[in-house]
């Protein structure tokens, strides 16, 4: 009964919420572009935008020593999660069967384990830093904590179901993923998509002024 609900209607509901939420959010940003800048430009806004989307992956040299923990933990978490999401064998199989119709080479089991170790350690450090550092503690909201914990739970249930033999554990993972998908468009998690227009806007602004940002 619960199983049918989680695998069926709730799954589709969460997908609808997730995708429509993202399309709505991104649409309201992309299709409502601000008016044209009338000042005479010194450089190209477009190339600035494209450049900044990529340059912000690296921290400024002078800044790096002060934010080393965030950089390292942030990369550990994001890269680990990315690997888990797109290169874990069960995920590829799932995508192939339900969405894409084609698959790609999954990473070996040991790589999966290492990726998840990275992701867990990274997320744990980031979340603890959020609580323990006065700056991030002051600016963090309930949303930030819910998003962190939800992501952690999704990863945890996924890894607990690693043996792939207990339906209950698989369902738990599926259910937490569904909650995650539903929560996603209404929260801080949207940064996974909105970081692109944000960087592009800033990059364009600086690009017109001939500054690399």
């Amino acid at each position: 009964m619960i199983m049918d609900f989680i695998d069926g209607p709730f799954w589709y509901f969460s997908l609808i919420v997730f995708f429509s939420g993202i399309i709505w959010n991104m649409g309201s940003i992309v299709f409502a572009l601000s008016k044209v800048d009338l000042s005479v430009s010194r450089g190209s806004a477009v190339s600035g935008a494209i450049k900044t989307i990529f340059t912000r992956f690296a921290a400024d040299k002078g800044m790096a020593p002060h934010i080393r923990l965030q950089i390292i933990a942030g990369y550990m978490f994001h890269l680990g999660l990315f690997a888990l999401l797109f290169f874990a064998a069960p995920h590829i199989l799932f995508l192939e069967e339900h969405f894409l119709g084609f698959g790609w080479t999954p990473m070996p089991h040991w790589a999966f384990i290492i990726a998840s170790e990275f992701a867990f350690l990274g997320l744990l450090i980031l979340w603890l830093h959020r609580i323990l550092n006065p700056v991030s503690r002051l600016i963090s909201t309930a949303d930030d904590h819910i998003a962190s914990i939800l992501t952690f739970v999704v990863m945890l249930t996924g890894c607990l179901a690693l043996l792939e033999s207990f339906t209950a554990l698989r369902l738990l993972h599926r259910f937490s993923v569904e909650l995650f998908l539903i929560y996603f468009p209404f929260s801080r998690l949207m940064h996974a998509f909105t970081f692109i227009p944000s960087r592009a806007f800033t990059g364009a602004w600086f690009g017109r002024r001939g500054i690399s940002s």
Partner: peptide, 22 residues
């Protein structure tokens, strides 16, 4: 119980290396 135990075992194995690193 075996569901719990399996989750415990997988979780235990997974978090062990993190313990070592920290």
């Amino acid at each position: 119980f075996s569901v719990f135990a399996s989750a415990s075992k997988e979780g235990h194995n997974l978090f062990g290396p993190i313990f070592l690193v920290s």
